[in-house]
Each structure stands twice: as structure tokens, then as C-alpha cells.
């Protein structure tokens, strides 16, 4: 089982990211579960969302405390939220940052880091600082958990009016993300 924890702020689409990833995994024939951290959602407040992917039925319904992958959708959360907490040895961390992955690898003490300037891509492609699908693009570059085609189909279904823009942003992240480890 692969466990992914998303850190974001209300309104950035962390919950949507977790959901799209799970749905794409299910579309690909896997079992998956996605759920928010069950807070009272407020725009701008830090929140978490979770995805589990497995090849058998997922009966575990606790929160995720020892993730295989951590996704951080907002640069300001990297240091304020102890995002690497519980990250498994050899776990992957995917960051929205303008800095190099090497910088964060040293700072957070994590070997596998994927860095992408997601907010910049979001502003250029979408005009709003919503980084959910962009972060999924970066994730899939570092670790192809699910077939990107299934993710694109789910993006189309989720954002029918701006699907082309979203997919372009998603693909840019696949190209531009920098991965180490």
C-alpha cells in the first residue's frame, strides 16, 4: 500500500488533488481511498488530505502518520508545518517551491525530493494560484504511481470548462519538475 499525505491551504485544491489521484488509480484498476482531514474547511487555513492506493481492498481508515509520499502545495507550509513528519525512510517529498530540490533535501533531511514552481505555472497557465493538478504532474514525474492518461481524464471530468488549460499546466509540471534521489 502506498500512502500519500497532502499539505495545503483551504482553497488550493489539496483535497481535489487527493481525490483526482485516487480516482485515476481506481480507473486504472487499483483500490484507492481519498479523504480530507475532516476539519471545518476555511480558505487559507492549513489542512491535510490523504490518498491510499493498494492492490487489495483498503480497510485501514485511520489518518496517515507514516506516509510514503508527502505533497506540499504551498511554499509557506514547508517549514511551518513539519511536513516531513513520519515520512518513511526513502520516502518522497514533492514541494511547491522555487528553490532547488537539493536545498530542501539538506534542510529537511530527506533523500528523495521533487521540486516544482507550481504557483508560477498556475499563475501563467490558469491565472489563479491553485496548484492541485500541477502538483500531481510533479508527483508523476518523480513516481509514476498511476498512468498519467487516467489523471488527465479525471482532470477533464473535474474541470470541464478549463480542462485544456489545466492539462497544459499538468504537463508543464511533468516537464519542469526537478527530481533528486
Amino acid at each position: 500500500m502506498i500512502e500519500i499525505r497532502f499539505h495545503g491551504r483551504g482553497g488550493q485544491g489539496a483535497v481535489t488533488s487527493a481525490e483526482i489521484l485516487a480516482q485515476a488509480a481506481i480507473d486504472g484498476g487499483a483500490f484507492a481511498a481519498a479523504f480530507p482531514s475532516f476539519g471545518s474547511e476555511r480558505r487559507g487555513a492549513p489542512l491535510q488530505a490523504f490518498t491510499r492506493i493498494d492492490d487489495k481492498q483498503i480497510k485501514l481508515r485511520t489518518g496517515i502518520y507514516e506516509p510514503d509520499i508527502v505533497m506540499v502545495l504551498d511554499p509557506t507550509l514547508i517549514e511551518s508545518q513539519n511536513v516531513a513528519s513520519g515520512l518513511k525512510k526513502d520516502g518522497l517529498i514533492v514541494l511547491n517551491t522555487k528553490k532547488d530540490p537539493e536545498f530542501w533535501a539538506e534542510k529537511l533531511g530527506v533523500r528523495r525530493v521533487c521540486a516544482v514552481g507550481a504557483t508560477t505555472i498556475a499563475m501563467e497557465e490558469l491565472g489563479v494560484p491553485i496548484t492541485n493538478v500541477i502538483m500531481l504532474g510533479a508527483l508523476l514525474k518523480a513516481d509514476e504511481l498511476v498512468n498519467p492518461e487516467f489523471v488527465e481524464k479525471r482532470i477533464e471530468a473535474r474541470f470541464p470548462r478549463i480542462a485544456q488549460k489545466e492539462i497544459r499546466a499538468f504537463k508543464r509540471a511533468v516537464t519542469e519538475a526537478k527530481v533528486i534521489g
Binding site: A18, A22, F31, A32, A33, A34, F35, P36, F38, I58
Partner: peptide, 10 residues
């Protein structure tokens, strides 16, 4: 509530 209502699963 939440554990199932807000859960995405197959």
C-alpha cells in the same frame, strides 16, 4: 460521517 461520507473509494 466524514470517514465514509467524504471518502472516495471504489
Amino acid at each position: 460521517g466524514f470517514i465514509l461520507t467524504h471518502m472516495i473509494e471504489p
